[in-house]
Amino acid sequence: MKYNNRQQTLLAQEFVDVLSIERNLGEKTLYAYKNDVDNMIRWIDLRHYDDLNDETVMMYFLYLQNEIELSCRSIRRKYVSIRQYCDFLNKTLEMNEVFFKFSSRKFQIPRNLPKTLSKAEIQSLIASVTAEFQNVSSDYHRRLCIRNMCIIELLFCLGLRIGEIAALDIEDYNREECSVLIHGKGKKERMLFISSPVVCQKLNHWLITRLEMNPQDSAMFVNKSGGRLSIFSIENIFYKYRELSKINPHSTPHFLRHSFATQLLNNGANIRDVQELMGHNSIVTTQIYTEVSLNRKREVLMKYNGRNFMNTV
């Protein structure tokens, strides 16, 4: 098709609007789609190409790969965004243009195993908050400790993302049932149950303490000014107790989420159940945790490996 900058700019915005309506994607995901398409449009414009076709698209991806040397993961994401945009162009403009003559297999993403914390490290992390709470010297620090204790507990107990922690409101928590409504990625919601009575007690204690911090809205976790705690503040809370507990110095809050999933599988949970608890769209995402679930592998091999039942020395 003939390239026209004004037309493409308008179509790119329409593409994002359609995605927002049809797929109910989150704001950050929509921004990523728009950014990927806009960058290609700018690249075509700067090079004064007359056509948007399979050759132009191929040249753009060679540029991403060879000139600016983007990672496989970044190129693969742009492939998905731009391919969907091109499909949108064909549908909207009633064309049958072939924009891609290569597949995403060209950009295979190396699979990295999820990084976890050991049971001892998690216990040490939780204990570091408890120890600080027992030695606080003011009401202000007492309130912060109770809040931080609940955040660390929920990161592991429910395997939450830091964004999900930040998005929690007090009405999302049902005290009688010890259940929490989680607002996940892509505006998807899931209901989780706090199975640990200790964690429930800590959260109930926090709800009373929270009122002392003059909350400005319904946010579950608030800062010293009473406003909603940001994801960056939650990260910093984790890093503080990471240092105090002297666990893996490279660990992040997401290590607790990985540990949650891995321990569920180690303890015999069904992978479909883990998928639902984690809020994964696809079981393929969840399956990577089976690679680090050594206890489960050991149990299966000890129980079913045919060599175990042979008497041959």
Rank of each mutant, 00 (worst) to 15 (best):
V16R: 02
N295R: 08
F156E: 04
L211V: 11
L19Q: 11
F61L: 06
Y140R: 15
K246G: 09
N236H: 15
Y304D: 11
L244Q: 13
F255G: 00
L64Y: 04
R42N: 15
S20F: 01
L30N: 02
V284Y: 01
G186Q: 08
V198C: 05
E55K: 13
F260T: 03
M278R: 09
D273S: 14
C150K: 04
N4T: 11
E27S: 14
I152K: 03
T92H: 08
V57R: 03
S245H: 08
S245W: 02
R142N: 12
N112A: 11
L113A: 11
I162Y: 01
C150A: 11
F102Y: 10
S74M: 04
E291Y: 06
F238P: 03
M310L: 15
Y3H: 13
C178R: 10
T116N: 08
G306K: 12
L203W: 07
N281W: 00
K224A: 13
N112R: 08
L93R: 07
D45I: 05
E97Y: 09
H183G: 10
I288Q: 09
S218G: 14
L168E: 01
I68D: 04
E153F: 03
L62V: 12
K91S: 14
D17E: 13
R307L: 15
R42I: 13
G268D: 07
D51M: 14
R242S: 00
K297R: 08
V274S: 06
E212I: 07
